[in-house]
Design a protein around this nucleic acid. Sequence first.
RNA 1: GGGCGCGUAGCUCAGCGGGAGAGCGCCCGCUUCACACGCGGGAGGUCGCUGGUUCGAUCCCAGCCGCGCCCACCA
Length: 801
Amino acid sequence: MEPLYDPNSVEPRWQQTWEEEGLYAADPDPSRESFAIAHPPPNVTGDLHLGHALQLSLADTIVRTRRMQGYNVLFQPGYDHAGISTQNAVEKHLAAEGKSREDLGREAFVALVWEWLREYGGKIMFQFRRIGASLDYRRERFTMDEAYVRSVMRFFVHLWNKGWIYRANRIVNWCPFHLTSLSDLELEHREVDDALTFVLYPFAEGEGGITIATARVPTLLADVAVAVHPDDARYKDAIGREVIVPVIGKRVPVIGDERVDPEFGTGALKVTPGHDPLDFEIGQDHGLPELMVVRADGRMDGSVSGFYDGLTQDEAEQEILAWLREHDQLVNRESYRHTVAFCDRCKSRIEPLISLQWWCSMEELKKPALEALHSGRVRFHPESQHRFAVASLESAPDWNISRQIWWGHQLPVWQCPSRHFTVAEEEPAACRECGTTALVRETDVLDTWFSSALWPFATLGWPEDTEDLRAFYPGDLNTTARDIIRLWENRMIFAGLELMGDLPFHDVVIHSLVHAPSGGRMSKSLGTGMNPLALIEKYGADATRYGLMKMASSQDVTFSEGAIEEGRKLVIKLWNAARLILGAGVAEAAERPSSLEERWILARLSQSQRVLEANLAEFDFSHAVQELYHLTFDDFCDWYLEAIKPRLGEADVKATAVAALERLLKLLHPVMPHVTEEIWTALPSRACRLIVASWPEAGDETEAGALDAVKDVRRIFVRSGVLPRGLDEERQRIFDTVAKPERQRGNGDAGAEARRLRDEIARAEGMLANERFVSKAPPELVEAEREKLARYRRELDAITG
RNA sequence: GGGCGCGUAGCUCAGCGGGAGAGCGCCCGCUUCACACGCGGGAGGUCGCUGGUUCGAUCCCAGCCGCGCCCACCA
């Protein structure tokens, strides 16, 4: 074995070998229990970021463990077409050439996206390979594959036939750049400094008027009422009267509505149902019309009001302010900081507009999903996220499934001139109602998450009844970040229950979000991103996997390179330990312990394995990984190897060491697959690749504490410089091999340990002298304290003689 | 405004009712032939603040203070 371990030359070699030898491959095998993870499909135009790397490391660790445990494992890879995101990326490219998608037209633009994807898309799978993710790459799927499109169409038709899809005018979040509606979940809210303008609306009859406060002056052209709280004494008499909207001179009613906050502004609200969600609701309940004065592109529309057609909103605002000043109706204007919605993809300010959209009713879909969540048939980890998933599903509003963009799954809806809808998976020849062949397809595309919802089974061939589906559905686990629980997790759950009649998985791991060292969110645009490939190049994939998993303890975690450095240390340490054991020549692997330390390390391996298995079962990756670190460093290397080093020439000692190393490698493999496989090939007894070797049976742990007494003895010696007396032969030997060098150096602070013991004795005596402690504390605790006291006294005697 | 979470050694984090821990960093000593990518030792914490429960609280409860993320129609 090479003295120096170079992950960059070893790791890619194994990644290639495993894949070429078909060890990642999952094929239906009725003789074995299956274990399936449909890995979250990244954006096809995406790049590997830390979140992916973490997510992959966690899932791959579970996957590799399961594979070794004999399960028929499917780890499903693929991409998402990612609607707006991808369209955006391509449009940016176009913009660089001074073109827009309108210049090309829809068909040419979509063709360009495909072309662009062939060139720039799909890079991320290479990066997935580089981190060692054991996905079945033969099965790569894309949410726009021909077969996948059929699944999506089937889903839509299914929902339509159930009567759950409908069309309705709603106020939507409109992105004036993308010219599409966005769901609430595609927004980003930011604080903005605006002006709050106080405008007088004079009464139509008589003196005076009502002053309203607004942050969006131009929309007053679309006002249809002024609303006040019904109990607001200031305006009690105004309800039922009419006021005149400035500029346009229109008479509108004053209405009472409880949704008006009397504390805000003047307590009077201008009602603009066409441009504000709250106003829309109020308008609906009061039977008011919905007028619009802002166009889809964000500019003013004069067709209704007769004013400012084509002006920007800022220009219109200036015009209106001038008019108000002139007529003495501008009461006040103050600076105002509030949160405003922006498109989370292009950062344009959202326009609330009324638009005709397609919706999917959640009423029936969410019932079985909620039942599954409540009963725990599907469980989110940690528990707090389970509660969040339940709450967000319970309150889930109807799903706006249409988007007015070009890249995506076009709705399978055709309309005839008589406005009949024909919904079908394939293009119909004629209108289902009137038989005309003059059909026009709906131009909207589906929300990206509509297709994502099918990921766990569309990738297996649904709606066909495939062998893959029977073998790998339902799956087992999904790993994701908590920001897409509502977008994706909940939807996969109800889609799976509805279409497959079963859950897509029973466990959902909500992993940590890794923040930049500066504390904030990691994001490329903020310049706080971190490239995992750079880390892999610097430290190796094994170390990076280790480090990321070590960091993944609580819900938000600050990135620390030290954790990865620690992983690197562990890799190197393991490598050198293997060199020591295997360096003396070939030997068989057999557990033939003949001494205390040998029995001890075998017991420790079993004990540690149980801890590891328990940690993984709870998806506690951070502790799992730390257990492995201490097992390897402290116990295996610092104690066991140091103790047996002088006797490694003996056949039985070496055979046992090789056997112990084998078990250690198996436990480490799921976390650091490459270095362990590399060492494994040097073992004399290997019968197959480590990646498919069988997971060990945890054995007897009873000897795990056997060396503790020796460790204590050594500690006492090192600190006091005094050799304890009365060691048995076994301990004396271990003491001589491990602790002796210290004595020869004459290191240690003589008497320090004795002082420490005297302190301990005083503390224990003090506790036992406390009557309330002795009488009220649990008896076993008191007894334990007595035993400690006795032990400290014995240790002190051993030192001082 | 609501939800979730976090404040423990210089840094990143464990521990969560009975003796303050790890890794990194720092200091001291070691080129002992697996590993200086190493070994051994050490310094360094009123466990955010204030109350409460308890014989006992870093740990449980309440209230503050600070920080992060997610969500939200106060115009």
